[in-house]
Design a protein around this nucleic acid. Structure first.
Length: 152
DNA sequence: GCCAACGTTGGC
DNA sequence: GCCAACGTTGGC
């Protein structure tokens, strides 16, 4: 069982959007490292933090569950999609997504700023300089620590 | 809007 | 295979 953190801009897709649709394909990933993580390491039943990025208060806002194994990202095949990639085809897909299911919202936003101040989170990949990956692994210790911050 | 830190592209 | 130019991410 693995833990993850997945970023999304709330103006594009927020935790409230996920709550409404309940389950959705996490589409639009166009980074090879992130693709490989989804395809090779994410498993059904893994848990992930939903993180709001590029917004007023960036931070962890909720929890979701990986609902199934990686599958080809259909937006890559759609010429009308902004994620269209002519180099990807159903026969030879280049991009993958995982399905995610809403679990719950946190009682409050655990902000990026707060997390930076926590010794226990000093090694977190999210907090490393220059990190731009939209999905990063989270250790069980980091996971539990962030959940303990929710109550503070 | 700025800009640091990456990733990608393409000429050579 | 190198590397300059360009594009993107995302905090601030």
């Amino acid at each position: 069982m693995n833990y993850w953190l997945m970023k999304s801009e709330p103006s594009v897709f927020s935790i409230d959007d996920l709550r409404k649709v309940h389950t959705t394909g996490w589409d639009g990933v166009r980074n090879y490292q992130v693709r490989n993580m989804m395809r090779d390491q994410m498993r059904k039943g893994d848990l992930a933090f939903f993180y709001h990025s590029s917004c007023e208060v960036p931070g962890v806002v909720g929890i979701m569950e990986i609902a199934g194994p990686a599958r080809p990202d259909p937006t890559a095949f759609d010429p009308k999609s902004k994620y269209y990639d002519p180099g990807s085809s159903p026969e030879k897909p280049r991009w993958y997504l995982v399905d995610v299911r809403f679990k719950r919202k946190l009682r409050r936003v655990v902000t990026l700023e707060e997390m930076r101040g926590e010794k226990a989170l000093a090694g977190m990949q999210l907090l490393k300089r220059g990190n731009r990956l939209s999905i990063t692994p989270v250790t069980k210790k980091e996971w539990d620590h962030i959940l303990s911050m929710e109550k503070a």
